[in-house]
Amino acid sequence: MNLIVRNIAPSCTEQEVREFLKHELGHYARNVEVVDAGTPGAYATVELDAQVPYVGEVIARQIHGKHLGGMALEASADLFTDDSPPAQPPAH
């Protein structure tokens, strides 16, 4: 399960974002990847060490609104990763 964190301040470096998220998420953060650091479109994906889908949503709510670099972060859980594709509706 992945956590997507957006609205990262352009003034934040990749290292600052990674350290902040690892500190905030503790043992739940398996891997943190920061994309386009230093730009207005910067975001981070965090591979969560959690097997239950609702845990990702709870973690996203805890990160959502926290401030980094003077901006409130936006976070959401990606319930569908490459390991677990979305369920298909039953065939009729």
Rank of each mutant, 00 (worst) to 15 (best):
M1H: 12
M1T: 12
N2P: 12
N2F: 15
L3A: 05
L3Y: 08
V5S: 04
R6P: 05
R6W: 03
R6N: 11
N7R: 04
N7Y: 03
I8R: 05
I8K: 03
I8S: 03
A9L: 03
A9E: 00
P10F: 06
S11H: 07
S11I: 13
S11M: 12
C12F: 10
C12M: 12
C12N: 10
T13M: 06
Q15C: 07
E16D: 12
E16F: 07
V17N: 05
R18C: 10
R18M: 08
E19Y: 09
E19W: 07
E19R: 14
K22H: 11
H23V: 00
H23K: 12
H23S: 12
E24D: 04
L25K: 05
G26W: 02
H27S: 14
H27V: 05
H27W: 03
H27F: 10
Y28D: 01
Y28F: 15
Y28G: 02
A29T: 09
R30D: 15
R30K: 15
R30A: 15
V32Q: 05
V32K: 09
E33W: 08
E33H: 13
V35P: 06
V35Q: 11
T39W: 05
G41F: 11
G41D: 08
G41C: 00
A42W: 03
Y43T: 06
Y43I: 06
T45W: 11
T45D: 03
T45I: 14
V46T: 11
L48E: 06
D49Y: 09
D49E: 14
Q51W: 00
V52Y: 13
P53N: 00
Y54G: 04
Y54A: 00
V55H: 12
G56A: 05
G56L: 06
E57T: 00
I59N: 04
I59L: 15
A60P: 01
Q62P: 00
H64L: 00
G65Q: 01
G65I: 01
G65N: 01
K66F: 01
L68K: 05
L68I: 02
G69I: 03
G69Y: 06
G70N: 07
M71V: 10
A72D: 02
E74F: 07
E74C: 04
A75F: 01
S76N: 04
S76F: 13
S76C: 11
A77W: 12
D78G: 15
L79M: 14
F80C: 11
F80K: 08
F80I: 04
F80N: 14
F80H: 15
D82M: 12
D83Y: 14
S84G: 11
S84A: 10
S84K: 13
P85Y: 14
P85H: 11
P85I: 10
P85D: 06
P85A: 08
P86F: 09
P86V: 08
P86W: 04
A87P: 09
A87F: 05
A87T: 04
A87G: 10
Q88R: 14
Q88L: 15
P90Q: 10
A91I: 02
H92S: 13
